[in-house]
C-alpha cells in the first residue's frame, strides 16, 4: 500500500481539507495518507471530514502547532 505524505502547513481554511480530499480522491482503497497542518481548525475539520466521507482516521498527534493525521482511504 502506498503512503502519501501531504504538507498542508501555512494554509488556512478551507485549503487543507480541500487539498487532502483531492489527494485521497486520487488514491485507491487502502491507501494511507499522512498529512501535517498547522491550522488550529484542522483537527475538528479532519474529524468531521472522516466521519462524513467514511475514510478512516488511524492516528492524530499534536506537536506544538503541528497536527499530524494518518488516514486510510475507504
Amino acid at each position: 500500500m502506498a503512503t502519501t505524505k501531504l504538507d498542508l502547513k501555512g494554509m488556512s481554511c478551507p485549503m487543507p481539507i480541500m487539498k487532502m480530499a483531492a489527494a485521497v480522491k486520487k488514491g485507491t482503497s487502502g491507501d494511507v495518507f499522512e498529512a501535517v497542518c498547522d491550522d488550529a481548525g484542522f483537527e475538528p475539520d479532519v474529524l468531521a471530514w472522516c466521519k462524513e466521507t467514511g475514510n478512516k482516521l488511524d492516528n492524530l498527534t499534536k506537536s506544538g502547532k503541528d497536527i499530524t493525521v494518518v488516514i486510510t482511504k475507504k
Binding site: 481554511c13 481539507i17 480541500m18 480530499a21 471530514w49 462524513e52 466521507t53
Partner: peptide
C-alpha cells in the same frame, strides 16, 4: 465559496 469548496471536499 468556502462552504461550497468544503462541501465538495466532503464528497
Amino acid at each position: 465559496f468556502i462552504i461550497a469548496n468544503g462541501a465538495l471536499a466532503m464528497g
